[in-house]
Amino acid sequence: MPRRIVIGIRGIGHRVIDSIWRLGYASRFFMLTLLKSGTSMRRFSLIIRELYFTGVLTLIIILVSGLFVGMVLGLQGYETLQKYGAETAVGTLVALSLVRELGPVVAGLLFASRAGSAITAEIGLMKVTEQLDAMGMMAVDPIARVVAPRFWAGVISMPLLAAIFSAMGIFGGYLVAVVLIGVDEGLFWSQMQSVVDFRFDIVNGIIKTCFFGVAVTAIAVFEGYDAQPTAEGVSGATTRTVVTSALVILGLDFVLTSFMFRGVG
């Protein structure tokens, strides 16, 4: 029996050491990516190419989901608010929920599952097919040439995608509340404008998306680069990217929100 306990404790210790080691390894990789970003900054066409894959190809899902999330918010918000005779506040409700929380978080989750997984799979496959090794043998650093452009493209696209998501959502809320239900258009916008604060709501939302962009792409490139060079390795890494990103986005969102809106409410 005591032997079992020792084995159990050893198992816990092993896992803790492993995960700390991996965290350190990931941080070191992240620093290397930042240090070796010079090449992609000088040759911006490398980033543009990746912007197409991370940004443009994620656009469709962001546009459609943004529109529907906004429409649902408008519908549900109207149902509840009209009981209190405050249906003109539906614009405020839609805008605040989107700009503060739903925009950054949902866009971040969609970004992780569409672009993040693609980045991991692509880098992982390049590793499996020895493309990264080949690049190293050609005296080209794969971190500078492959990882850094993808990282920066992700960091640039994420805030833009989240902004498009929020704008699309507000448009969806407008469609439902004003066009379909018939809430007064002027009141819809003026109520929204009188409550939504540029500095506290919009800028804070953008800051959040920047954090999410860095986190998701850093996880995606690391998982891809670190993947076991087999088919299962790459599929496992892709799954880990999506799961870890989702958890990190939600956790970060709580931490950032509690910092940003401290003393309010």
Binding site: L51, V56, L59, V99, L160, A163, I164, I170, D197, I202
Partner: peptide, 23 residues
């Protein structure tokens, strides 16, 4: 496409700032 994407993103930011946030 990338150009369109960036313009759309910045446009959305401007809409949020001017139309929604009333900057």
């Amino acid at each position: 496409w990338v150009g369109l994407f960036v313009i759309a993103g910045i446009g959305a930011l401007l809409i949020l700032a001017l139309k929604v946030g009333n900057l």
